[in-house]
């Protein structure tokens, strides 16, 4: 059993709260993967989740857009995740996962562009909503590509296949796809684990830039990355949130011995 610290209100240091995870547990079948997670996600800040492999950080991230609902045998338990300001529990049975995914978008570990053109990849989030004018779609695709710092590189080949881009460009294409619908939160699931250092740098810059517009939750294997891009960091260990605090505090003066051992490389 890991000692779990409750999030004291002053951890967020006056930042507005965008989402509140309350005593959340999650089961794959009978296997309990998340244990009583309580956590607040600050609005228009970057919150990082770190921890050794299998600690449940990706599982927690995928609760936020109900990805687990796609597969049988998965179950959420506890107080759910409340999205503020209106305080809806996005894990509630009365909330359609599709609605959640329209408000909270996701960037995956490995770039997964559709085998369609660059333009169609980005436009897809708008297409599923229907009822948009062609000129609106064009404009919003351009905005999203600019937002993902990709516009200048692809503006002359919007109608060639997304798969023809480089790995880093593909990942930024996926960021543009996640951005086009003006989501309230973007989830990043180890977005740079398949990228080289230069492409990684670009994605990190992008994350730092995006947080002026949108709340970001990022899972990362790379502790330096968490230290570089995030404002708040949660350290997870065997399904529990062992520590959650401001990033500088976690990396300079962690309260939990486990956190200290992990960030100093003694395990994990």
């Amino acid at each position: 059993m890991v000692e779990t610290l409750n999030v004291s209100p002053d951890v967020l240091a006056g930042a507005a709260v965008k989402a509140r995870v309350q005593d959340l547990s999650f089961y794959y079948g009978t296997h309990r993967v998340l244990k009583n997670i309580t956590l607040s996600v600050a609005e228009k800040k970057v919150t990082a989740l770190i921890g050794p492999s299998g600690c449940g950080k990706t599982t927690l991230l995928r609760c936020f857009n109900r990805m687990h609902d796609l597969y049988p045998g998965n179950r959420y338990d506890g107080g759910g995740i409340r999205l503020l300001p209106e305080n809806t529990n996005i894990l509630g049975a009365d909330v359609d996962p599709i609605e959640v995914r329209m408000r909270i978008s996701m960037v995956f570990q490995k770039a997964n562009p559709f085998p369609k053109t660059v333009f169609e990849n980005v436009a897809y989030g708008l297409r599923v909503r229907g009822d948009l004018k062609k000129s609106d779609i064009n404009e919003r695709v351009e905005q999203a590509l600019r937002g993902a710092a990709l516009w200048d590189e692809v503006k002359d080949r919007l109608h060639s296949l997304g798969a023809n881009l480089s790995g880093g460009q593909q990942q930024r294409l996926c960021i543009a796809r996640a951005l086009v619908t003006d989501p309230e939160i973007i989830l990043f699931d180890e977005p740079t684990s398949a990228l080289d250092p230069i492409a990684t740098g670009k994605v990190e810059e992008l994350v730092a830039e995006l947080k002026t517009r949108v709340t970001i939750l990022i899972v990362t294997h790379n502790m330096q990355q968490a230290a570089r891009v995030s404002d708040f960091t949660g350290f997870m260990y065997i399904g529990e949130l062992a520590e959650f605090d401001r990033t500088e505090k976690i990396f300079t003066n962690p309260s939990n011995k486990l956190t200290e051992d992990y960030i100093t490389g003694r395990f994990g």
């Binding site: 857009n65 990805m67 796609l70 599709i98 609605e99 995914r101 329209m102 978008s105 996701m106 995956f108 490995k110 997964n112 562009p113 559709f114 085998p115 897809y124 989030g125 297409r127 599923v128 909503r129 996926c174 796809r177 996640a178 619908t181």
Partner: peptide
């Protein structure tokens, strides 16, 4: 068709039929 493509479609809010119609069937 890789599962990651399905997840990508669902992640932007597609319904199952939209996922099938726009992705599974063409690919």
């Amino acid at each position: 068709i890789p599962g990651s493509i399905r997840e990508a479609a669902f992640a932007v809010g597609a319904t199952k039929w939209q996922m099938i119609r726009h992705h599974i069937l063409p690919y």
